[in-house]
Design a protein around this nucleic acid. Structure first.
Lengths: 352, 352
DNA sequence: TCCTTTCGGTGAACCGATTCATTAATCACA
DNA sequence: TGTGATTAATGAATCGGTTCACCGAAAGGA
């Protein structure tokens, strides 16, 4: 029967009830080998007689100076988090690096209320942050840096003032575009996504800038800005609509470069709806090689990037820096992992 | 230029440098209206002269008695988290309930190391837990309850000793099965997923038991246990393989009941691969009405459930209980939200 | 001029644990 | 029986803030 104990039970109360000092009581929980079996028993008994919930994490944290958690700052609002299946492997990588030390992962999503989100970051009980694909001038990122905790930045090579891991987005995009060019395509549309712009219009993500640049380089003289469509958020639906529109035009593109596989999926849906055959009438190239890419119809040609490795490395570095205990470092550690163009069945030479 | 201050800067240091008491320094940050403009300035200036990262969250938490975060305990390991697109709307619901108060969301995934995962829960700095679709005898759930913090359970109606929100899984599944029955199907396969079993083989999720029961009831005399396949984890790939196998048998099923849309997607992939036409040769019914369901080819007949509302309600209740500040409650609050069978184009009467 | 408010600042108590230098008790062995 | 070595328990200091009862000075009122 639950009594309505309104007061919380403190370690002190347990010690008193057990007739030992708080010191001993603490040991009984934290390092049992230091107390006699006898004391341990008494303490544990007292504890559950009183309904003691165990040492208060907040207090133990304060004393230990470790929060036991890592903050993950990412681009989307929570509701759209992980809508893109490409992010699952990244998480898997983070997870495997964290599995040894029992740490929690504190999600720090974007929010409609920018400043509130930053406040959450300022007040988050964490030992460090991973900034995943969020622009450097995001208030949350600034707040994270101001905390003077270790930070590792992912997918944001240019602006980072911290260690970072990423891929060569430009080269990857360029190879995708060059592939289409070589097949002979001359009307190539681009599906991109932009992050929400702040009032100053400056919240640009390196990632999208770089990929766009790569497309332009790879397409060379057939690059056509009027065929670029912004799809927001990064999900199939907006891409489907954009593609429907593109294919409805008098002179439709013969190929589409989608900045993510998720957008490519939308493009494929639109094509299927209109009875446009892929790749005979339309080639589609994605980016990421997300888990869905090989199961679309037809299987998607895409630029593979080592998501899982990115996640693993970022977490690994962060944990190292946390254990090193010397605060944040600069951008003295960096890795650019390679990408690879995977040619599957969604691309072919244009008709005629 | 960053000096290598190894010591952390404390509020005390700031106060000293500013020539005021720590009390005033604290106010300058926390409640500016209580100090004179003059003092506030001096403190803030001293703060950034010293590079003070702001009040230490751990300490402030301890004093305030609030962690400012909610723990989310969910079924999958972190790597597989949110692999199922059906979970995104749930998160969105949670997010919208949390948007007012700036709280963090601490992910408490399952782990290969069961006990480590439970430890993380025991030591998590949170004010309460949402248990999302995790079995009641999961060590993490037990740890959460032992913390004597508010807990809300989702999708686990039977075992819950806490408030819970869920749907009538059995009725939903029954309606799906009845639909197929009415169309005239007599060989109906079932794709299910089971949670990892613990050494005692008891980690059963109500959810899957209920849905399975519902299928059985709805199918009546055509229920055939030998056509039940376990697909693990809950992702398209295992379902694809299972379906490939089912369709390769001498007497293949004419319809498939998939326990989640994610599994249904795998079934559709397998059918497409084998050139089996849906719904002409094979009917497929999903569950969840996840965002992908209306975009599959063909659009998926499925049992819709109000994921977003579930998330919203769970978070709402939890926040209320936290603010009420009277510790955990029992299962005195509960809601079963309705499901609805959405008939799209993946089901039809069997041939002949 | 004296008394009462008002305003702003102070500093000690407290949040709930962990740690460690000390002290007390027990044991082994000569 | 005395001595040194172990082993176990103690309690005060500490982690880094927030809060609040109290106090002094300046302003307002009679």
């Amino acid at each position: 029967m639950p009594h309505d104990e309104h007061k919380r039970v403190r370690l002190r109360d347990v010690a008193e009830k057990a007739g030992v000092s708080v010191g001993s009581a603490s040991q009984a929980f934290g390092r049992p080998e230091l107390v006699s079996e006898h004391v341990r028993r008494r303490v544990l008994d007292a504890a559950d007689a009183l309904g003691y919930p165990g040492p208060d994490p907040a207090a133990r944290r304060l004393r230990l100076g470790r929060a036991g958690a890592i903050g993950l700052i990412f681009a989307e609002r929570l509701g759209y988090a992980f809508t893109d299946p490409a992010q699952a492997p990244f998480l898997r990588g983070v997870a495997s690096a964290m599995e040894e030390a029992p740490n929690g992962l504190l999600l720090l999503p974007d929010s409609r209320f920018r400043e509130e989100a930053a406040r959450t970051v300022r007040e988050a009980a964490v030992d460090g942050f991973i900034v995943y694909s969020a622009p450097q001038n995001d208030p949350r990122v600034e707040a994270a840096i101001a905390r003077r905790l270790p930070v590792v930045t992912v997918d944001q090579p240019r602006g980072a003032v911290t260690p970072f891991v990423g891929i060569d987005d430009r080269a990857g995009a360029r190879s995708a575009a060059a592939h289409l060019r070589k097949l002979g395509h001359e009307r190539v549309a681009v599906l991109t996504f932009t992050k929400a712009l702040d009032p100053h219009g400056k919240l640009e993500l390196d990632l999208s800038v770089e990929r766009l640049g790569g497309y332009q380089e790879g397409l060379g003289e057939v690059w056509n800005p009027s065929l670029v469509r912004v799809c927001r958020p990064n999900a199939p639906e907006p891409a489907r609509l954009a593609t429907l529109e593109l294919l409805g035009e008098p002179e439709p593109p013969t190929a589409i470069l989608a900045m993510t596989d998720t957008l490519a999926v939308g493009a494929l849906q639109a094509a299927a709806e209109l009875g446009v055959s892929v790749p005979a009438d339309l080639s589609v190239v994605g980016f990421d090689d997300s888990p869905v890419a090989e199961h679309t119809t037809p299987p998607l040609t895409t630029v593979a990037q080592p998501q899982e490795e990115k996640g693993w490395l970022a977490a690994q570095w962060l944990i190292e820096d946390i254990e090193r205990g010397e605060g944040p470092r600069g951008r003295d550690r960096q890795t650019i992992l390679p990408t690879e163009l995977l040619v599957r069945e969604s691309t072919a030479s244009p008709r005629g």
